[in-house]
Amino acid sequence: MRIVKQFAGLGSFCWGMFFLLCSNAGMAQTASLKSSIERGKTVYVQRCMVCHQQDGGGVPHLNPPLDGASAVKGKDKSKLISILLKGMSDRVEIDGEYYSNNMASHADLSDQQIADVLNYIRNNWSNKVPTPVTPAEVKSVRAKTK
C-alpha cells in the first residue's frame, strides 16, 4: 500500500512536469510554425506560384489547386514531401480532376525550405493544418527517396 501511494505521488508530479513541457513546447511550436510559414511564402513565390497561382487556385485542367486540396490538408506528410522531392507527373485523379502539366522535382531546396513551403501551403488560403512539417521529416523522406 505504501508503495502504491508513493508511486501515485510521483505520478502526479510527473504529470505536472509533462503538462508544463507540453504547453511550453506548444507555444514554441506555434511561434516556429509561424516563422516557417513566413519563410515558406518566399519559396512559394519563387518556385510554385507560377503554376499553382497566387491564391493557390491552380489552372483548370493544367495545374491542380492547392487551396482546399485534400492531399495538402491531409495527414500524409511524407507523400507531400515526396512530391516536392520527386516532382509529379502521375496523371492521377486529384479531387475528381486530371491535370496535364508536369511538376518538376524541387529536391535542390533544403530540408528547411521544403518544410517551410509545405507549412505555407498547409496554412494559407482556406487551408489550416496546425501539425507542422519539420526539416527532420524531410530529411528522413529524402534518405528513403534516393
Binding site: 518556385r47 516532382g87 502539366n101 508536369n102 511538376m103 518538376a104 522535382s105 524541387h106 535542390d108
Partner: peptide, 14 residues
C-alpha cells in the same frame, strides 16, 4: 510534350 526540351522538364536550371 515539354516546355523547352530541358533534360528535366520544368526543373529550375536544367
Amino acid at each position: 510534350y515539354s516546355n523547352s526540351c530541358q533534360v528535366k522538364d520544368r526543373q529550375p536550371g536544367s
